[in-house]
């Protein structure tokens, strides 16, 4: 970690009111993010995606977001209007979604979708946006940017689609990138390539990255630090390299469930859950 934190989150809560009482999707989550790669792991429904969306102001109504502190650099996100968030999204914080098949607009060409971000934030008109988009496509190691620029999402492979997605999100030079399961929809071989590109860009531009994943291996190999979330809470924070030494029983359970070369087990241990973890024990 270097310098002042890019993002400060203290006691973030996301609540969905309903007839049967409030559902707490995220409870008192706190962390800071510098120019580093932070992983958030947890099962589906643990609140990791919602945390990412809350930072971008994209929690859909009737969801309610509150926090003791939620700031991006000097900017207090708690008091930010929708208009303010709009200027921030893509420009300062961006988000890569899981599956390019669904996350790219099927009736708009890839080039137009990428340059659209540029035009919304940087301005300078169509030709400038086109040039920037082509450069960006090259940056995500697409060999024939001119051609890909004109293609539609259904005409490219998953790996290429995800690279286009990254290009679309990074073209306006955000400080923080939230990658929500960016490789889960891809083939294993492509996963590594896409992660390598992501890593290169994030390091090269000195960005902060939040990598949200259910894949403990991936997160521990790729990130500097890891948050483990369970039922909306952060149950463990540690250096990625020291994940093996994690203390929380939930993290231990997750680690224990991972298959390992050279270690045969008759019975895969069942993940133990304690309701008390959700209450912040």
């Amino acid at each position: 970690m270097s310098g002042a934190p890019l993002l400060c989150v203290r006691n973030l809560r996301v609540t969905y009111p309903s007839a049967q009482g409030d559902t707490h999707a995220v409870r008192d989550v706190s962390f800071t993010l510098g120019r580093e790669r932070l992983g958030i792991v947890g099962e589906s429904g643990s609140g990791k995606s919602t945390t990412g969306r809350a930072i971008m102001g994209l929690v859909p109504p009737p969801g309610r977001v509150t926090a003791d502190e939620l700031r991006l650099g000097e900017l207090d996100l708690c008091r930010l209007s929708e208009r303010g968030f709009r200027q921030l999204r893509g420009r300062r914080v961006a988000m890569v979604l899981q599956d390019p098949k669904y996350a790219l607009n099927p009736v708009m060409s890839i080039g137009r979708q990428i340059s659209e971000t540029h035009r919304a934030h940087v301005g300078g008109g169509k030709p400038a946006a086109r040039r920037a988009a082509l450069e960006m496509l090259e940056a995500v190691r697409i060999r024939d940017p001119e051609r890909v620029f004109t293609l539609f999402p259904h005409e490219v492979s998953g790996g290429m689609g995800q690279r286009a997605m990254i290009a679309m999100m990074l073209i306006a030079n955000p400080e923080v990138l939230i990658a929500d399961e960016p490789t889960s929809a891809l083939d294993a071989t492509i996963q590594t390539q896409v992660l390598a590109i992501l890593d290169e860009l994030v390091r090269g531009r000195g960005m902060g990255l939040i990598l949200i994943s259910h894949n403990l291996h991936l997160v521990s190999a790729f990130c500097d630090r890891v948050l483990v979330m369970y039922a909306g809470r952060v149950v463990e924070t540690c250096e990625a390299g020291k994940l093996r030494e994690a203390k929380h029983p939930y993290t231990r359970g997750l680690l224990d469930a991972l298959p390992e070369l050279g270690r045969r087990r008759e019975l895969l241990p069942q993940l133990q859950r304690d309701p008390a973890w959700a209450d912040g024990a």
Binding site: E82, G90, M95, D99, Y102, A103, N105, A120, M169, A172
Partner: peptide, 21 residues
């Protein structure tokens, strides 16, 4: 659809997300 969320995450205006995308 996810692409609507992605378009929002890019910082497009609600108008553009709805009436174009």
């Amino acid at each position: 659809q996810e692409y609507v969320l992605a378009a929002m995450a890019k910082g497009l205006s609600g108008f553009r997300v709805i009436w174009i995308h």
